[in-house]
Design a binder for these strands. Sequence first.
DNA 1: CTGAAAGCGCTAACAG
DNA 2: CTGTTAGCGCTTTCAG
Lengths: 335, 335
Amino acid sequence: MNKTTISDIASKAGVSRMTVSRVLSGNGPVAEETAKKIKSIMAEMNYQPNLIARSLSIRKSMNLGVLIPKTEQLFLDNYIAQVLSGVSDIAQENDYRIMLVPVNQSCSEKGSYINYARSNLFDGIILVKAKINDPNLPELAESGFPFILVNYRKNEHGYNYVDSENVKGAELAMEHLYEKGHRKIAFVEGTKEETNSRDRLKGYKNSLKKFGLEYREEYVICGEFEKEIAYERSESLLNLVERPTAIFCSDDYMALGVIERIKTYGLSVPNDIAVIGFDNIEISQFSRPALTTVRQPIYEIGKTAATALLNIIGNKISQPVRKILKTKLIIREST
Amino acid sequence: MNKTTISDIASKAGVSRMTVSRVLSGNGPVAEETAKKIKSIMAEMNYQPNLIARSLSIRKSMNLGVLIPKTEQLFLDNYIAQVLSGVSDIAQENDYRIMLVPVNQSCSEKGSYINYARSNLFDGIILVKAKINDPNLPELAESGFPFILVNYRKNEHGYNYVDSENVKGAELAMEHLYEKGHRKIAFVEGTKEETNSRDRLKGYKNSLKKFGLEYREEYVICGEFEKEIAYERSESLLNLVERPTAIFCSDDYMALGVIERIKTYGLSVPNDIAVIGFDNIEISQFSRPALTTVRQPIYEIGKTAATALLNIIGNKISQPVRKILKTKLIIREST
DNA sequence: CTGAAAGCGCTAACAG
DNA sequence: CTGTTAGCGCTTTCAG
């Protein structure tokens, strides 16, 4: 273990700890000779600075906290995996480390993660999949602690976010279905507590209006962004007398569930019912039929969020940060 | 931001910092009255202890470092995502946090991550996909710093690991192919620098011997655990005069690549060529045809590794830790 | 260019 | 039950 400290090096080199500290950081002025000697002693003694001590002293942790909603087997969610990849890449480029914090974002639990902001563990926080009625959010925004929301849009003071064009993305999907001749289009909503879910619903409604189609309540169900739930609840759609000829799901996982359910009815996708998803997760290209979907640039969202956060931390940017990345239709076999 | 410290609370409560510290940790004895008062003041002032300072003092970071080989878009590797899920679940149960550290495990770079062990940033380290000739490993083992290897087997002093039955798993796959009538069975190797790759090759060879089949060099190619590389190199297999009737790939990603390639030849899986993978990643059930594979309990491996590591850290267990989890054949459509 | 003093915010150990 | 002293290992500040 690491027992050698800056003092050991100093005494062995016959200098003060300060001088050692200076060669460590490469900051202050040190005579070349002295520096060389100190460096060789450090190497010889296998010295490694105690980063915790440094953090305490400089009051920076060099850590980014990535808060993700706690679920079963967290990282299997390909969406989160992609965000993380982006964040991790940027963090690394800037000598930052990232710390994963699964949090309970249920409305009731107040103070659950807001404390992390005060714990000095992170220099900034990235919040993934925040909930609309999360009671900690306003407090966090007010605190001035650097943070950024991923896939959550809120144009209020203190809020920074990176999102994608959810409304427009949904309209893209609807347009595609309309052009394919569909007039009875159902919608599978995600969690009502996420802004992107609301935005996609908005896009759905916008399109209905634009195309002069009627909004029917029985055509809209909520799948909570869960494959299994979408599987269960899509039954109601399939039992309808006027069965929809197309189903727009607000994420790919739900689309997969819906397709599975349609198959149990002996119906074919896309011949009997077309299905379109949202996100473009890894599996979507492998599913049967391959899933038509609206791509979100998730990896880029992660990169953008991390970059912005680092800029906020370094005061290199004036808040608020509000970025909206483009979505894109990817046509495959399911429509 | 957090400006209120333990001293603020102390002075406001008219007690010493120690008393406050005691109610914080819940350890030492404190009069009920005093404790109550202090607690209310802490709440009122919105106090949150500085965890960095605490770490420095108690000489524990409450952090687990998870070192994963640096690659393009890290977390998209479903294998790593599953390990992480397991680790994260256990860490959380024990009030530990996890920190992700992408590392360059290429042989040349010495000292790349060994320093982390000396940085006091982590109380222990989980090494995922370590390389056989990683020059840091012996040093790490010697240092006595708590660490555990995931999917890496090395029965030497100082090495702790959690692995799965790779040899046996490979034999399971081969047996299945043999029973299906295959006698010309090719093998796609993973990175030669990982023990599990070697073990699977060993299982392949064992089985050939057991079934009285000849080992042919031209039947073995190396796909480096990369879908694209497997796609490229499997060409040589398909061009063979005596083309194999089955291909055993040492991971699912490579199996997907091979299947893709087979399709470009206008051949069908499994009718013309059977393909079997290893791991059972998420996509394998969605691929076309759905992939027959050998399941590794990856999530459990992550959990087991984290549990063992925490025990090592807490001195609750005598090293070495050497766990081998079971593999299982999952028959789907590709064989 | 180098060093001394003080402090980051907390806790361990001992004394009362 | 509570307080005092000292210290974790580094850096900032100021003086030389």
